[in-house]
């Protein structure tokens, strides 16, 4: 389901906004859907940018990593809401989703660490070392978009205590050559 929101419906500074809702099972049963959706969002959004090919490539890359992470995190039979806005100073992607019981604490801890920035060493170590098998949720992907694309990823408070809102922000400068 897709809604293209009129500007200023959600945020007074949004130049463009789009919201999509999906059952998470679609992605868990067919992982390629993450890539398809990331490409769709990227193509749709790129027209807002001067350097379209560049924007499309970056938006698809970061969206795909975030989606892969959430699809690992979310329990089956839950839903995923994606809200994307182009703001004056960058692109903001908010996802509203549930997190499986055993991953809540590791995910919160990971996001707290990510907020402090990704240093070269742990990221580069993770590139060649085994990832955690018990609490895996595409940590490398989230670190990659933070380290290489300047994505700021934070958890926002929500009205429903069991729902997570993961917000990703990319500043306009990151879309420039």
């Amino acid at each position: 389901m897709q809604r293209v929101l009129p500007p200023q419906s959600d945020s007074s500074t949004a130049l463009f906004a789009i919201e999509l809702t999906f059952p998470i099972d679609e992605f868990q049963q067919d992982w390629k859907q993450c890539s398809l959706l990331a490409n769709y969002i990227a193509e749709y959004t790129a027209y807002q940018f001067d350097q379209q090919e560049r924007a499309e490539n970056i938006v698809s890359t970061i969206t795909n990593e975030l989606l892969e992470a959430i699809v690992y995190l979310a329990p089956t039979q839950s839903d995923l809401i994606i809200h994307l806005e182009q703001l004056e100073d960058g692109l903001q992607l908010k996802t509203s989703h549930l997190v499986r019981e055993n991953l809540i604490a590791p995910y919160i801890k990971f996001l707290e660490e990510l907020k402090l920035g990704v240093a070269d060493e742990p990221y580069l170590n993770l590139l060649t070392s085994p990832e955690p098998s018990d609490h895996y949720f595409n940590q490398l992907g989230l670190m990659m978009i933070s380290h290489d694309f300047g994505a700021q990823i934070v958890r926002l408070p929500t009205m429903q205590p069991d729902r997570f809102c993961t917000q990703l922000f990319i500043a306009n400068e990151e879309f420039q050559a």
């Binding site: 890539s35 490409n39 490539n57 698809s60 890359t61 795909n64 990593e65 892969e68 590139l127 060649t128 595409n138 490398l140 992907g141 670190m143 990659m144």
Partner: peptide
């Protein structure tokens, strides 16, 4: 190569290693 994901980068990194 139009796109790569972190797992793809991991495969490349392991190869370079």
């Amino acid at each position: 190569l139009r796109y790569i994901n972190a797992a793809g980068i991991k495969a490349l990194s392991l190869f370079i290693d």
